[in-house]
């Protein structure tokens, strides 16, 4: 999974260097199961000066509020209770609505190489509308979480993984 997804990181690093002549200060990606994020992070994981920020749905923050547990064959940080029973996750975006996460993200969190922050449904919706209005790009609701937290950053050059398009999410967005 990581080796396939890291094409995102390798190509964006190469393209950014060609366009800007420097590395980004921060790389931001949404994290559900974590595949797009691990892919873009791996292009930059050895660039110690590049901050890696993963953005979880606030109601499905397995890294932010989870505990060590085993789900779907992996030991990772999982939304679970004291007995190890898996808790319900909630997110407006289907792709982030998952109580577990790829274990390498838990390792990146624990080593401090990456940080993980939450984003609410409302914040993601605001970011969705803002990108649509200002750039004419309809982002996936998943990616909108990354956009929302990217807006908070005090940095000049930020790379956001726009991991999907939002056509699929229009019914959901219009219902809010």
């Amino acid at each position: 999974m990581r080796e396939l997804q890291r094409v995102i990181g390798d190509e964006s690093r190469e393209q950014l260097l060609a366009a800007e002549g420097r590395l980004p200060e921060v790389v931001v990606a949404c994290v559900g199961g974590g595949s797009n994020a691990i892919g873009i992070f791996y292009g930059f994981v050895d660039d110690a000066d590049v901050r890696l920020v993963g953005v979880e749905a606030a109601g499905a923050a397995s890294l932010g509020t989870g505990r060590a547990a085993v789900l779907h064959g992996a030991r990772s940080s999982v939304l679970a209770d004291d007995d190890g029973q898996i808790a319900d996750a909630h997110s407006i975006s289907a792709g982030l609505d998952y109580p577990g996460v790829g274990p390498e993200h838990a390792a990146l969190r624990d080593s401090g190489r990456a940080t993980y922050v939450p984003c609410t449904d409302e914040e993601a919706l605001d970011a969705f509308h803002r990108l649509a209005k200002t750039e004419g790009i309809i982002p996936a609701l998943e990616s909108s979480h990354a956009l929302a937290r990217a807006l908070d950053l005090d940095a000049e050059l930020v790379l956001v993984c726009l991991s999907g398009r939002g056509d699929k999410d229009l019914a959901e967005v219009l219902s809010h």
């Binding site: 085993v70 789900l71 190890g84 898996i86």
Partner: peptide
């Protein structure tokens, strides 16, 4: 059972 149960217990 499943590993999650033993992991927690």
């Amino acid at each position: 059972t499943y590993a999650a149960i033993l992991e927690a217990y």
